[in-house]
Each structure stands twice: as C-alpha cells, then as structure tokens.
Amino acid sequence: MSNSNEKVAVITGATGGIGFEVAKRLGKDGYTIILNGIESETGDKRVKELEIAGIKAEYYGFDVTNEDEVTANINKIGEKYGKINVLVNNAGGIGVRARFEEMTTEQYRFVMALNLDSVFFASRAAIPFLKKSENPSIINYTSNAAWNGAGPGAGIYSVSKGGVQSITRALAKDLAEYGIRVNAVSPGTIDTPFHAQIKSTKPEVFASWANSVLLGRLGQPEEVAGVVSFLASKDASFMTAETVQIGGGQALGI
C-alpha cells in the first residue's frame, strides 16, 4: 500500500518513443511511474534509466490488446498502490497497412484492438483505482487521421482513432461525477524511432514532411510529454473531454 502523498501514473506502451518521454516527464513531476510494454528486457532497461534519474519506476509486461492481461495487471497495480492517479493510454500504432478491399477481418480486428480496445480495457480496469486518488485523469492519444481519413492503407487506423476521439468524450461524461477528467492529445508528425527507417533510407521524404507543418519542423517527443504533463496536473483541473493538437499547425494544412 502506498503512502497517501504518492502519485501513481500508469503509461501503456512506454518503453520507447513518446511513451518513454512521457514517463520521464511525469517522473520528474513526482509520479511513481508504471511502465507497460511487451519487451521485458527493454522494460527493465528503461526502469533502470528512470531510477538513475531519481524516479521511482516499475515495469509490467502485458499485451494491451488482451483483455485478461490488461485487467489482471491494472488490478495488481491498483491493489499494490491503493490508487492510480493518471492513466496514459499511450500504446497504439498503424498496426497494418492495407486497402479496404484487400483487408482481412483479422487485420481489421487487430488495428481496432491495438488502438481502441486497449483504451477501453485499461480505462475500465483503472476506474475503481482512479476514484480513490486525488486529481484523477485519463489521457488518450488520437490523431489527425481521426477526422481526415488517413493516408492510403491506413484507413482502419483512422477508424480506430475516430473511436478514441469518441471514447474520450464518452468517458469524460461517464466519469465527471467522480471528478475523473478524460482528455486526449493529438500529436502531429513527431521525430521518433517510429520514423527512423524512412529518415535513414529516404531523408528527402522525411525532410519534406516538415513542409506540411505551419511551424516548418517536426515535433519532438518532449513536446508531447509537456502537454501530457499539463493535462495530468492541477493546472488543467477544469479541462475534460478536450483534444489538444500538438502538430505545429499541421492540421490546418498549408
């Protein structure tokens, strides 16, 4: 059982990229960090990195698309600490690239599970523990794809992120009576290992992406982490059901 002043943040898919930057930032904000991932070696390494920085951290390996694994692990975390202050549903991704005509039902279900089921499973399991904490909130990740239909082959990613947009608002309505806030961030093109391959093999394509951004550059993971930190903080105590664009104006198109 935790002491009453301890703040606990659970971050899914947090062993790299934006998720790990969020872990570092919330750790600096004074949270005990619960990292989730599916590679235990990487998870253990990340926990050590956080501990070296003076951040209390633990790794829980589970697949966010697996209902039983999510429920069992979130319950374990909640029971150990007596509460969860912040759930960051960071896990997700394109998953599969396929045009609708060729898309298999398995591919469809996998992408929906990765981006939308994961938010439902983790949120549902965390709610009883969020109710026991101070300034509780859930932070989800949506995307420009939620309203622009995404690029060729990423249509189902768009559908899943549209679902995240809706579940953010629906959860906010459902949980308002308990003082649990639910918001989302919508990162634009962020310079992470996610884009490392195209950066190294087609640097001109990677460089061209910046041209579609009003501010003329790609985002950094720390810039997403800063907004997540704000949404989790008391400074955002009157914000719920919001989606914050972090895309340098990319959504406007230029």
Rank of each mutant, 00 (worst) to 15 (best):
T189V: 15
Y157G: 11
Y141F: 15
F120H: 00
G151P: 05
G179A: 12
S133G: 11
A176S: 14
I180K: 08
T189A: 11
G179N: 03
V185N: 12
A145Y: 08
D117S: 02
G162K: 05
P187L: 11
I167S: 11
A150W: 12
A170M: 05
I156Y: 04
A146M: 07
I180N: 06
L114N: 03
R181T: 00
V159D: 04
N115Q: 03
L171A: 15
F121V: 06
P136W: 02
G149E: 09
Y178A: 11
A154G: 08
G153K: 11
L175V: 00
S137D: 13
N183Q: 05
R124Y: 13
T168K: 06
S137E: 03
A176T: 06
A113T: 00
Q165V: 09
G188L: 08
I139Y: 03
N135I: 12
N144C: 05
D174M: 00
A184M: 09
N144V: 11
V182I: 11
N183I: 00
P152I: 10
G179E: 06
L171V: 08
Q165R: 14
L171Q: 14
R181Q: 01
S118V: 12
P128M: 12
S123M: 12
L114F: 10
G155D: 05
I127R: 00
G188Y: 06
P128H: 13
G188N: 05
K173F: 02
K132A: 14
